[in-house]
Design a protein around this nucleic acid. Sequence first.
DNA 1: CCAAAAGTGTTTGCTCTACACCCATGG
DNA 2: CCATGGGTGTAGAGCAAACACTTTTGG
Lengths: 230, 230
Amino acid sequence: MDTPPTSLTTGSMADLEVRFVAFSLRNDHLHVLLAPAATALPDHWEIPGAPFQPDLSIEDTAAERLEELTGLRESYLEQLYTYGEPGRYPGGQRVSVAYFALIPAGMTESQPFNQDAARAHWFPADHLPDLAGDHAEILAYAMRRLRYKLEYSAVGFQLLPETFTLSELQKTYEMILGEDLDKRNFRRRILEADIIEETDLFRAGEGRPARLFRYRADAVAEVKTRRLFP
Amino acid sequence: MDTPPTSLTTGSMADLEVRFVAFSLRNDHLHVLLAPAATALPDHWEIPGAPFQPDLSIEDTAAERLEELTGLRESYLEQLYTYGEPGRYPGGQRVSVAYFALIPAGMTESQPFNQDAARAHWFPADHLPDLAGDHAEILAYAMRRLRYKLEYSAVGFQLLPETFTLSELQKTYEMILGEDLDKRNFRRRILEADIIEETDLFRAGEGRPARLFRYRADAVAEVKTRRLFP
DNA sequence: CCAAAAGTGTTTGCTCTACACCCATGG
DNA sequence: CCATGGGTGTAGAGCAAACACTTTTGG
């Protein structure tokens, strides 16, 4: 990788930025949102983000940029790690506060809002392009953390639309964890965890119609102690 | 080695800083290292730290400062969270990358290296003074994370000297978790986890001498998956 | 009535927990 | 020889894993 000479650009906050690894499900595969690399690397991509804005919180800066790129407000955002190794990215010292974001399925097809949004693309998480700097490392960490969170907490719903069937939820978990789960055990645990509730709607399709469930607005955060899947 | 007192409010990256919540055991109580608040608040204290240094990694910046304050190199350092809410700290927007540090017992009595070190004090974790800005929140989070880590991983050794008895280790865990543990279960699990090994030394005292154990240099990181204490 | 997916309990094995006594040393 | 802390095994309970058939709909 050819790195241009690292000049220490010292604009006061310019070296501090926010990045977010945005995950979403598209046609039954986990995808990640990437932007063309800002450096002159051909065919390289990077994790999207924005420079830190002093009058906003870090998370709000990320949320704002995420909305610009996806058109969606109120996505799930969680801070991952702050990267600041010298030389981690071509073109000068840079500190990145990395987040991961979960975008509900079916919401990623809308018209691009602006040029940046038009240039960004969703890539399948298991077929990623070359990434600039240490972004492959960041992405791998985000992936690990997503798996981990899924086992210990109730974050999986954030990748699904507002209502969903238990089979869809299970497929989501299986897709991300990379292993098959037992249908009966899965349903029992998810229901005992008290984090979703029935609606009285059903989704028709082939076979018997499936009951739709909804994420419970309360009890959100505090299920995080008990392990859901081993 | 005598560095001039580094004020946290100068220079181009002055708004980006590193802070660390340093824990250590002193006479059977968990203590936290605090510095007098840099703002003009009387009788307020703050979590120590340093401005970010562009030519060092964030962790190295913290490690360097930690050495200035304690005289110790190679302490356990782990990144906690990055705080950047506007208004979180009096006197202008500020982004802090927070770490927690574990300092081996018996190493905190040395002569202060410089003025800053002389002004810093160890406070018992259950009797903390007033803290500036959002530092109480950061400290509470560090405490939670330490407990959590202790349950799921093998980090407790970092608070003890190089060799230690199983009873000392157990007392450490009990002190931090705030509950008593069963002696036999504790020993079985710690030994099965394969993270410490016998030495052939013993510590004499009252009663039967206790075998000294040592942290295993290998296998360090990867025990973090399996829960040690429920 | 057939295909397709939804839904539903029980048994078995394993891991966690509770628990009490003998051992080695120093004074 | 006594006080003090060090060291050791086992039985029962609770939780997680494996497993197969019935139900409801659309074509």
